[in-house]
Design a protein around this nucleic acid. Structure first.
Length: 486
RNA sequence: GUCCCCAUCGUCUAGCCUGGCCUAGGACACCGGCCUUUCACGUCGGCAACAGGGGUUCAAAUCCCCUUGGGGACGCCA
C-alpha cells in the first residue's frame, strides 16, 4: 500500500511558516516514498473560512513548490477535498455512532456550558462536561426538540485512558478524564475538527498523520473515534513546533511569520524550502545547503528531532543570500525587477536609456545583498550620484591629487558614448603614470567622483555600464563639490 | 491549576536508539587574520554547549530516576 499523507489547513488567511513546515515535511515524506501528497481544506469553521483564503493558500503552496497530488483543483479519487462539501458523509457516521451508543445528543446551551466551565475553573476543578444529557430518556429528548432546541452531538467517552503510539514521541498515555465527552457535531450540523479529521483521514486512506505536536493532546479523542468506527489507525507523527526568539510558539508577535511576507520581503522559495527543511530535521551528513531533490532523497522521519526549534531569521537571511549568489543573470533580473519598480527606480527615462544594461547592473550587485528589499539602495549607484558625501568621501576628494585624477579621467572618456573594461584599465594605468597616484588615491577617488560613495558595485562595472554622458555629468558634480570643500 | 511534550554553544544542529572513536563536530551570528582598486564574496582562525542531582557501569552527552527549566493543550477553533 502506498504512502498517503495530507496537509489540511483551514482557509483563514496566508499560510504561517509553522504550517508551511508541516506541509513541507508531509510533501518530503510523500515524494521520498513515491507516495501521495493530499491537500484538504478544513473549512468547518464557517465564521472564519473564506474562499479567498483558499486561493491564497494555493498560491502560497505553489510558491514554495509544494504541488499536491490530490485535492482541490487537481481532484482525486477520494474527494471532495473540502470539508464543507463532505457534510453528508459525516452525517452518515454520526448516525452510526449514535445508533451504536458511541454518541448522544446534548441539549445544553452554549451559555450554560460556558457558565459551568467558569464555575469549574473558579473552584479549581477540571472544566469538563458533566454528562448531563448522556442518559436523557426519549420523551425528554422529544420535548426539548419540540421546544426548538437544536442539539449538538457528543462522543461518549467510556475508556479511562488512551494510548497514543507516536512515531516521534513514542508511547504516550492519556487519561480521558482531562477532556470528558466532547462535541463532534455542532447544533448547526457542522462537524468539529476532531471528528471530521478522523472521518476524512480514514476515508482518504491517510497512512501517516504528520502534524504539529500541538495536536498531540487531540489525538486520544481521535483514536476513540477511530476505534468506535472500526477504522484502521494511521501512524501518528507529531513534529515539534517552531518557536519565536522568546521561545514561545511562533506567531505574528515575532514579526513576519506568514509565508507571503517572506516572498514580499525578497526571499527566494528555494531558500525558504531549504531553511524550513532544517527546522527539527537534519541530513545524515549534517549538510545544510541542499536543493529540493536532494532534500527529498535524504528525507526520513527518523531524523526529525523531538525538540522544538527557534526560527532564526538571521540564518534564513544568510541562506537566502547564498541562494541569490547562485542565481544566473536572467533569473536575478526577473526576481529583482519588481523590487526596483516598487522603489521607483525603473523610470521610463532610465529604462529607455539603459534597457540592455540593466541585467548587468543588477548582476554586478549579486554578491552584495541577501534579500531583495536590500537591492534598491545598492542599485542607486546606477540611477543617481550621491551628493551627500560622507566623511571618508570628503577626505578622498580633499587629497591634493584628486582634482587631477578626476579631470584626467574626464578628459580620457570625453567624446565616447561608452567605455569598455579594457579602455577603463588603460585609462587608469595612464592616470597612474601622469598624475603619479595609485591604489586608494586613484581608485577610491574615482569611485567617489563617479558615485559619491565609498562602497558599492565594482568600479569597472559602474564605469562601463553607465554612459559616458552620465559619467561626465557625475564627475562635474564631484568637481563642483570639490571646489566648494577645498 | 490539570494533562502532555521537550532539554548539547546565543540560535539551528551532529553525536544519543546500538554506552568507550567526544579533548563534544558542523552551520548562522559575533570577533580577528588573509584576499582585495571599495563594500561585499571567499578563505583561515577565535569565542561558545552536554540544565542540576542521584543511580547503573570498568566506562555516560549517550541508559534509569528525581529536581529544575521551557513549551504546548485544556473550545460547539483548527
Amino acid at each position: 500500500m502506498s504512502i498517503r499523507v495530507r496537509f489540511a489547513p483551514s482557509p483563514t488567511g496566508h499560510i504561517h511558516v509553522g504550517n508551511a513546515r508541516t506541509a513541507l515535511f508531509n510533501y518530503l515524506f510523500a515524494k521520498k516514498n513515491n507516495g501521495v501528497f493530499i491537500l484538504r481544506i478544513e473549512d468547518t469553521d464557517l465564521e472564519r473560512s473564506t474562499l479567498e483564503s483558499e486561493n491564497i493558500i494555493y498560491e502560497d503552496l505553489k510558491w514554495l513548490g509544494l504541488d499536491w497530488d490530490e485535492g482541490p483543483i487537481v481532484g482525486g479519487d477520494f474527494g471532495p477535498y473540502r470539508q464543507s462539501e463532505r457534510l453528508l458523509i459525516y452525517d452518515e457516521y454520526v448516525k452510526k455512532l449514535i445508533s451504536e451508543g458511541f454518541a448522544y445528543e446534548c441539549f445544553c446551551s452554549k451559555d450554560e456550558l460556558e457558565a459551568e466551565r467558569e464555575k469549574a475553573k473558579m473552584e479549581g476543578r477540571q472544566p469538563i462536561y458533566n454528562g448531563k444529557c448522556r442518559n436523557l430518556i426519549s420523551e425528554e429528548k422529544i420535548r426539548l426538540k419540540n421546544s426548538g432546541i437544536k442539539p449538538s452531538i457528543r462522543f461518549h467517552v467510556k475508556e479511562k485512558e488512551v494510548l497514543v503510539k507516536d512515531f516521534i514521541k513514542g508511547d504516550v498515555l492519556f487519561p480521558t478524564d482531562t477532556f470528558g465527552d466532547f462535541v463532534i457535531v455542532r447544533p448547526d450540523g457542522i462537524p468539529t475538527y476532531n471528528f471530521a479529521v478522523v472521518i476524512d483521514d480514514a476515508l482518504m486512506h491517510i497512512t501517516h498523520v504528520i502534524r504539529g505536536d500541538d495536536h498531540l493532546n487531540n489525538t486520544p479523542k481521535q483514536i476513540l473515534i477511530y476505534n468506535a468506527l472500526n477504522f484502521k489507525l494511521p501512524i501518528f507523527v507529531h513534529i515539534p513546533m517552531i518557536l519565536g526568539s522568546d521561545h514561545s510558539k511562533l506567531s505574528k508577535r515575532h514579526g513576519d511569520t506568514s509565508l507571503n511576507l517572506f516572498k514580499d520581503k525578497g526571499y527566494l522559495p528555494e531558500a525558504m524550502f531549504n531553511f524550513l527543511a532544517l527546522l527539527s530535521w537534519s541530513a545524515p551528513d549534517d549538510k545544510e545547503i541542499m536543493g529540493k531533490e536532494e532534500i527529498i532523497s535524504l528525507f526520513t522521519l527518523d531524523r526529525i528531532s523531538k525538540s522544538s526549534a527557534v526560527f532564526d531569521f538571521a540564518k534564513l537571511k544568510w541562506m537566502n543570500g547564498h541562494y541569490i549568489r547562485t542565481l544566473d543573470k536572467d533569473r536575478l533580473f526577473s526576481e529583482a525587477i519588481p523590487f526596483l519598480e516598487k522603489a521607483g527606480l525603473m523610470t521610463e527615462d532610465f529604462k529607455n536609456k539603459y534597457k540592455v544594461n540593466i541585467p548587468d547592473m543588477i548582476f554586478s550587485l549579486r554578491e552584495k545583498f541577501e534579500i531583495f528589499t536590500e537591492l534598491p539602495d545598492l542599485f542607486k549607484v546606477y540611477t543617481e550620484f550621491n551628493e551627500n558625501l560622507d566623511g571618508e568621501a570628503v577626505e578622498l576628494l580633499k587629497l591634493p591629487t584628486s582634482k587631477a585624477v578626476l579631470e584626467a579621467f574626464r578628459d580620457a572618456i570625453l567624446g565616447k558614448t561608452y567605455i569598455t573594461a579594457e579602455e577603463y584599465k588603460q585609462i587608469t594605468a595612464e592616470i597612474q603614470k601622469s598624475v603619479g597616484v595609485k591604489g586608494k588615491a586613484l581608485f577610491m577617488v574615482l569611485r567617489v567622483g563617479v558615485t559619491g560613495l565609498t562602497k558599492g558595485a565594482d568600479l569597472d562595472k559602474i564605469v562601463t555600464l553607465l554612459s559616458v554622458e552620465d559619467l561626465i555629468q557625475r564627475l562635474d558634480k564631484a568637481l563642483k563639490i570639490m571646489s566648494q570643500i577645498c
